[in-house]
Simulated assay, not measured.
Amino acid sequence: MEKKIKVLFVCVHNSARSQMAEAFLNELGSEFFFAESAGLEAGTLNPLAVAVMKEEGIDISNNKTKSAFDFFKQGKLYHYVITVCDESSKERCPLFPGITKRIHWSFDDPSSLTGSEEEKLEKTRQIRDHIKAAVEDFIRNVK
């Protein structure tokens, strides 16, 4: 059996964007990839992210938020570390030993959305769809 390509998705609190990216890569690319996600600091799982992923048939409601620094301290190694936060936050991400590639995908933060619940839900769906498209492109280009 071939070794899977290990990928870590990192955002600020591991509450939405990185959780969605991890779930999509593990769902769509499980034959070739193993994904984990973490935040610069562990936060609280975003209920909007849970809801829009459930619409895709993926349940992340029991996921725990994790700290990238805990993974770093554990000496975990990844082939790719993909930051999914804004430009200023990506610079705070730890450097992991053994990384062959570091990638940045910029996505809006669902926790900073404004408007009614339905408007925030619709904007989170758009973020989810952009993340899914990025993961699908990643799978096509890396495997």
Results as ranks from 00 to 15, higher is better:
E87R: 12
K54M: 12
L95A: 10
E27Q: 15
V50R: 08
L95Q: 12
F32G: 01
A68V: 06
F72R: 14
S106D: 13
A49M: 06
Q74A: 14
S37W: 01
F107A: 07
R92P: 00
S18H: 09
A16Q: 10
A38D: 09
Q19F: 01
S111C: 09
I58K: 02
S89F: 03
G29K: 09
R92D: 15
Q74F: 01
E41V: 12
F71C: 00
N62S: 15
A68L: 03
S88P: 00
R17H: 01
A38I: 09
L45Q: 10
L25D: 11
D86R: 09
D59R: 08
D109F: 04
S89Y: 03
I82A: 10
A35Y: 03
K73A: 14
S111N: 13
M20F: 01
K6L: 10
L40F: 04
I82F: 11
V7T: 12
I60D: 00
E56D: 11
E27T: 15
C93W: 01
N14G: 07
K66I: 10
P47V: 05
P94K: 10
F71Y: 15
E22G: 05
K90W: 03
L48D: 14
K6H: 12
Y78F: 15
Y78P: 03
V7N: 09
T44H: 15
H13P: 00
S112M: 14
E87A: 15
I60H: 02
E31H: 10
F33T: 05
T83S: 11
S88V: 10
I103E: 14
L48R: 15
L28I: 09
A68Q: 01
T83H: 02
N26F: 09
C11G: 03
G39F: 05
T83V: 06
F33E: 05
V12H: 11
S30L: 07
K66L: 14
K101Q: 14
S30R: 13
D109T: 01
V84H: 05
V81T: 13
K54W: 05
D109Y: 00
L8S: 03
S111I: 06
H79T: 09
E31N: 11
F33P: 06
W105I: 02
I58L: 08
P97N: 12
A38H: 08
A49Q: 07
G43S: 07
I58T: 00
E87Q: 13
H79W: 03
P97M: 12
S89L: 06
W105P: 10
I60C: 01
T83P: 06
V81Q: 12
P94L: 09
C85D: 02
A16I: 10
S18C: 09
V10C: 00
G43K: 01
E87D: 14
S111G: 07
F34G: 00
S106T: 15
F72G: 00
T44V: 14
L95G: 00
E22F: 02
S15W: 03
H104K: 05
I99P: 00
S106C: 13
C85H: 04
S111Y: 06
P94S: 08
F24L: 08
